[in-house]
């Protein structure tokens, strides 16, 4: 019973996250300027992290939380460096 509830809600949650990733990809392709694309890329990183959390709960394995943490760190570093590139024209001064 509880497994049925959990699997159904995880299915719905992963569907919603996939839809959100599609919308973020649409903004990344359409987005009028570079900052819109970077914002959409950062949002895609966050959504991929949430997707991995949902997948870790579905499989009942805690290994996926480390993967989610690493994806969050990579998203932070990439967005900061891209924003710095927009500001200065170079990443490392």
């Amino acid at each position: 019973m509880s497994a049925t509830i959990l699997l159904a809600s995880l299915w719905i949650a992963q569907g919603a996250l996939v839809l959100a990733m599609c919308l973020a990809t649409l903004r990344m392709m359409r987005g009028p300027r570079a900052q819109d694309r970077i914002l959409a890329l950062d949002f895609l990183y966050v959504l991929a992290m949430l997707q991995l959390l949902a997948f870790g709960m579905r499989s009942g394995n805690t290994l996926y939380f480390e993967v989610a943490l690493i994806i969050g760190m990579l998203g932070f570093v990439s967005t900061v460096s891209l924003a710095k590139f927009l500001m200065r024209g170079e990443v490392i001064e």
């Binding site: 919603a16 996250l17 839809l19 959100a20 990733m21 919308l23 973020a24 649409l26 903004r27 914002l39 959409a40 949002f43 966050v46 959504l47 949430l50």
Partner: peptide
């Protein structure tokens, strides 16, 4: 999260 994506669009 889906609401945030709709807002982004």
């Amino acid at each position: 999260s889906l609401l945030g994506a709709i807002g982004l669009i």
